[in-house]
């Protein structure tokens, strides 16, 4: 089992290299630094000198892959590829357009992102599984039918409307919690409640319906019939037999996103003005700050790969067939 996990871990390396190459191609080959400079400086009054200056300030004035002018190993290292792409493996992302160090920024913004993402993740999972179990327990009845219709209807509403509507209803009409921002310490909960609730409700429909399908598929299997033939009650069958088996497919979809919780939620954070990584990303996109977007792409991939690895580990915990082989 250990070799299995190590192998899966090593598997991540070529993938990260692949991601790195793709981002490099996307940011430096499809568009040259000149294009980026022209875009940042505004297309109108751009002079070749201004472009050169812009590039020099950001270290984009080097050759892409091979610096023939440099000496020795610097031929390979004094290049954009080495500086801007390979350095990401050391988590050195350079500076953003406004001159701040990106890694420091990421570190300080992680906290607020997690403060929302973790409760959303846990509550959301709990709510969806509970709701799905309820529907499965009453399957074939009108409660089940109504629940499924509700799920489909909830899935059909854009998350934008959940946020806009929720903010309007709870903060503006009922005046229950502040509409946006983030306080310090315990005071933060006041600000966090609304975004958390909205995110959980927004994701409930799709998740609950998906889990319901998994539960029903599982409960049509032979071993469930065996469990019933033992005389177990429906509840015992559902919780002791179906749920445990259904956790395997559910885990595949769920564990992989855990590391990505660090990235926070783009929409929620920007709507509620929460200074997390999600709003950082959106601001960077709007300001066309390529260095930040590049950094976030890389970090996102790293976290996803960690998620894949965690999925492998969680499989071994849940599924004896993998643990013992």
């Amino acid at each position: 089992m250990l070799t299995y996990l190590i192998r899966r871990f090593l598997y991540a390396i070529p993938i990260l290299i692949g991601v790195n190459l793709i981002t490099f191609a996307l940011f430096f080959i499809v568009n040259t630094p000149d294009d980026m400079a022209r875009m940042q400086l505004g297309a109108k009054r751009v002079t070749p000198e201004a472009i050169e200056k812009w590039k020099a300030e950001r270290g984009y004035d080097k050759p892409l892959l091979w610096n023939a002018a440099a000496a020795g190993t610097a031929k390979a290292t004094d290049t954009i590829f080495f500086d801007k792409s390979l350095s990401m493996f050391a988590f050195e992302f350079g500076r953003s357009e406004d001159g701040r160090d990106i890694m420091t920024e990421i570190r300080t913004r992680m906290g607020p992102s997690l403060a929302i993402a973790i409760p959303v993740f846990i509550l959301g999972l709990w709510a969806a599984i509970t709701f799905a179990l309820l529907l499965v327990f009453f399957r074939g009845t009108y409660l089940d039918l109504g629940g499924v219709v509700l799920c489909v209807a909830m899935m059909s509403i854009s998350s934008l409307f959940y946020i806009i509507g929720g903010q309007w209803l709870i903060s503006k009409v009922w005046n229950l919690v502040p509409i946006s921002g983030l306080g310090a310490g315990l005071d933060a909960t006041r600000f966090l409640i609304l975004p958390v609730i909205i995110s959980v409700i927004g994701g409930l429909g799709g998740a609950a319906r998906w889990y319901r399908t998994i539960f029903i598929e599982e409960s049509n299997r032979d071993y469930v019939r065996t469990a019933r033939a033992k005389g177990l009650s429906e509840l015992a069958v559902l919780f002791r037999h179906v749920l445990k088996n259904a956790m395997i497919p559910i885990l595949t979809g769920v564990v992989v996103v855990i590391p990505s919780l660090f990235l926070g939620s783009l929409l929620i954070e920007s709507f509620f003005s929460i200074p997390g990584l999600g709003s950082y990303t959106i601001d960077a996109i709007n300001a066309q700050d390529f260095a930040v977007v590049r950094a976030m792409v890389f970090i996102g991939s790293v976290l996803y790969i960690v998620g894949l690895w965690l999925t492998d580990i969680s499989y071994t915990l849940v599924d004896p067939r993998i643990r013992l082989n």
Binding site: D222, Y223, T226, R228, H241, K244, N245, D319, R321
Partner: peptide, 28 residues
């Protein structure tokens, strides 16, 4: 249904055709 459950597995036991799918794969 509750009375029936005391019969299933108690008074009347049952075994099925396909042993590989009739046992819960994640339970010892």
């Amino acid at each position: 249904e509750a009375e029936m459950r005391s019969v299933r597995g108690g008074g009347i036991g049952m075994i099925f055709q396909e042993p590989s799918t009739s046992l819960n794969p994640v339970m010892s």
